[in-house]
């Protein structure tokens, strides 16, 4: 499988000092933003007892595990073990990092050594992320106007007007997620309803 950038969420859904679950091609990630806004994507597992770090908590520029409070700094290294406050944790205790870039309001992840930048989605504004129980093929079948494989684009008639719609696909353990963007100045509520309708139509394709 060729390493590539995968969209794992929208910037607007990850405020400062918050952590969320992310995925990159079968790898579970903890994606988090520090108090000053620094964005990171890590392997979603505390090396101590295997707890998901996406259940943890952000304090300042660190992410802590919810199980025993082990604190990890910006470089992924363990900085503090609360059960042993006087101990300097060995430098060998680290969490693996992924490349994580925010662009056009979308959070993109890739392996740490990924070269190049994520695809550009200019003249669009982020709308919402939506989960589906079907695959991309069903989405394309439901709306033939959509073009593309991972980044689906179309100009669709919504109400009186033609609207630009862009759906960035992400396959995760729980199924497909589409990160939806729309044209700048578009009626976000109307496009959001259209996306929900698309989901209904795509999921019915599978059921049928």
């Amino acid at each position: 499988m060729t390493p590539r950038w995968i969209a794992t969420g929208l910037s607007q859904d990850l405020p400062k000092a918050v952590v969320m679950a992310g995925h990159w091609q079968g790898h579970d990630l903890a994606v988090w933003r520090s108090a000053t806004g620094r964005l990171q994507a890590w392997n979603d597992r505390c090396p101590h007892r295997g707890m998901r770090l996406s259940h943890g908590f952000v304090r300042g520029e660190t992410l802590a595990c919810i199980y025993h409070g082990w604190v990890y700094g910006a470089d992924g290294g363990c900085k503090h073990i609360p059960a042993h406050p006087a101990l300097t944790p060995p430098a060998t205790i680290t969490v693996a990092s992924f490349a994580c870039v925010e662009q056009d309001g979308v959070i993109w992840v890739a392996p740490a050594d990924m070269a190049g930048a994520p695809p550009v989605l200019s003249d669009l504004q982020p709308l919402r992320s939506i989960s589906l129980t079907c695959d991309v093929a069903a989405v394309l079948a439901a709306e033939p106007a959509l073009q593309g494989q991972d980044i689906l684009r179309a100009t669709v008639q919504i109400g009186e007007q033609g609207q630009q719609v862009c759906l960035v696909a992400q396959e995760g353990p729980a199924g497909l997620t589409l990160h939806a963007l729309c044209g700048v100045g578009a009626d976000k509520v109307a496009v959001s309803r259209w996306v929900e309708d698309l989901r209904r139509r795509a999921e019915m394709k599978v059921a049928a």
């Binding site: 579970d28 979603d44 597992r45 090396p47 101590h48 007892r49 295997g50 707890m51 998901r52 259940h55 919810i66 199980y67 073990i81 059960a83 042993h84 101990l87 205790i93």
Partner: peptide
Amino acid sequence: ILENQIPRLLPLDPGMEIPTQA
């Protein structure tokens, strides 16, 4: 906690997880 540890099985291989004196 218990439903969110990876792996679900308890690792007996000492290299898999990092214990401390606690």
